[in-house]
Design a protein around this nucleic acid. Sequence first.
DNA 1: TTTCGTGCAAAGCATTTGCAAGTAG
DNA 2: CTACTTGCAAATGCTTTGCACGAAA
Lengths: 138, 138
Amino acid sequence: MIKEEILTIFEEKGIKPSYQRIKIFSYIAEKKKHPSVEEIYEGLHKKIPTLSKTTIYNTLKLFVSKKLLSEILIEEDGVRYDYLEKPHLHFKCKICGKIYDIYKKCSIINCKKIDGHKIEEHHIYLIGICKNCLNKNG
Amino acid sequence: MIKEEILTIFEEKGIKPSYQRIKIFSYIAEKKKHPSVEEIYEGLHKKIPTLSKTTIYNTLKLFVSKKLLSEILIEEDGVRYDYLEKPHLHFKCKICGKIYDIYKKCSIINCKKIDGHKIEEHHIYLIGICKNCLNKNG
DNA sequence: TTTCGTGCAAAGCATTTGCAAGTAG
DNA sequence: CTACTTGCAAATGCTTTGCACGAAA
């Protein structure tokens, strides 16, 4: 994602574009990974040696509050972050630990009301063995 | 749930029935709530003043490993525990914080394979405003 | 006697807070 | 100048670990 795109997205959401914020957002959106705070830190502190975890925490909190990212709470190995481009599900492999995006339609995703409760967010987590690990082990 | 039922369930799962384990399981299964460690502690230490959080942690870990309970990771206010009776979804109200069980069919729940990945567990979390809070506030 | 469960105290670790210094407009 | 951002250090709080005592078989 080029810098201009990021600046546009930030402006739409009312986020002031600091160097750190651009790099952190870029890291999450570009890699299509679902990094933890630790991974973002490890991935960026070579380029930005002064980057602190506090700044990463602050920035992620800001992005989540502005609905730019969502938090993924899949199993207990900490919070992961996800760029909210299109609605999708998450699949986590219990062998390699990788998290995959799944773009499949599901009746629940379009559901706005259930048992009288108003639904505003859906988080669908699938856990199992990914195709790579299935091939390796069988 | 009567004590004999719990003893039968424990035996099936290979769990030795101590006084604390029975009380902790009973607390979770009976109330149909989704308590946190703190709530279990607060709820039981009147009756069992010596009960320690270490024992609660040990016990919950055991129950999860024996597939008697599952962990609910919905938003960030810590792990909640859920008795695995029938498959169901969870809805959390962002106003009152209550977690509801939802017994609705969903295509994802019956799905055993997706994009080549083998699915073994599903965790579906819905977040919004529950019917009680909708009535109070509108 | 031997194994297992319990629970206190201490340690571990991710996250948050306080605050001082730096930066941008 | 003024408001916001950054990042170090310390604090917080949940969870785990080490260990000794006690109960059960």
